[in-house]
């Protein structure tokens, strides 16, 4: 947690920081004030500097109030998160010109990443392969011609949603059938996993509720 922000601020060991540890938490707060935020004069930082003292908590609360932190009533994690963000903001404001260039670089990196994760976003809708594919699916579903292949694809989607799937002609069977079969098998595998989890949950509940009893004195054989 907080690794990115601590790294950005140049904290000596952002990897190993554990925000659950009270002592580490306090020292990071002190480090932020000493190195980055510098809201108090050096002599006024005494309260925060007494990391081991019980009075530190009070000093911290006061510190947050002085900074007008909006999350001063929140959990320690939220409080620290805000402090870190605040420090980052100050750091940025100090060196606007330096960071402005870096900013443009980052989205450039991120953009191709998003696209490559979903191949469908990469489709070239005007490529001959796409147009041919749409042509074939349209022939199977009986969708008429239109200049825009995207519009025809939308029509196919509508048909598949509203009416039962049309039978495909013999010659196309393996083209459509094989991928469909693979999808079905993968689906069944997922379903089995889900059912197994459901059964495990039921058994877990049974260990609490189950108490099967019989009472043979109640039994009576009929005529």
């Amino acid at each position: 947690m907080f690794k990115l922000k601590l790294t950005a601020l140049g904290h000596p060991n952002p990897e190993s920081f554990n925000c659950e540890d009270e002592k580490e938490y306090r020292s990071v707060v002190l480090w932020l004030e000493d190195q980055k935020i510098r809201h108090y004069k050096i002599e006024d930082r005494e309260g925060l500097r007494n990391i081991d003292a019980d009075s530190w908590k009070e000093a911290y609360d006061l510190y947050q109030k002085d900074l007008v932190s909006p999350v001063s009533d929140g959990s320690p994690n939220e409080q620290l998160n805000w402090l870190l963000s605040y420090a980052v903001r100050l750091e940025f404001a100090d060196n606007v010109t330096k960071y402005k260039d870096a900013k443009i670089e980052q989205p450039k990196q991120a953009a191709p990443n998003v696209v490559s994760s979903n191949p469908l976003d990469n489709l070239n809708f005007s490529s001959p392969a796409f147009v041919n594919g749409v042509e074939r699916v349209c022939a199977l579903t009986g969708v008429g011609p239109h200049i825009d292949p995207k519009l025809r694809l939308a029509a196919v989607a509508k048909i598949l949603k509203t009416s039962p799937h049309p039978d495909c002609p013999r010659t196309e069977v393996s083209v459509v059938q094989q991928p469909a079969d693979v999808l079905k098998l993968l689906f069944i595998q997922d379903l089995r996993d889900l059912q197994t989890k459901i059964n495990e949950a039921l058994v877990a509940v049974q260990s609490v509720t189950a108490d099967p009893r019989t009472d043979t004195s109640l039994g009576r054989v009929g005529r």
């Binding site: 009893r213 019989t214 009472d215 043979t216 109640l218 039994g219 009576r220 054989v221 009929g222 005529r223």
Partner: peptide, 12 residues
């Protein structure tokens, strides 16, 4: 398993 017309079960 109790059987027949008028039979009664053994599960209370």
């Amino acid at each position: 398993i109790p059987v027949g017309v008028g039979s009664k079960g053994i599960i209370p």
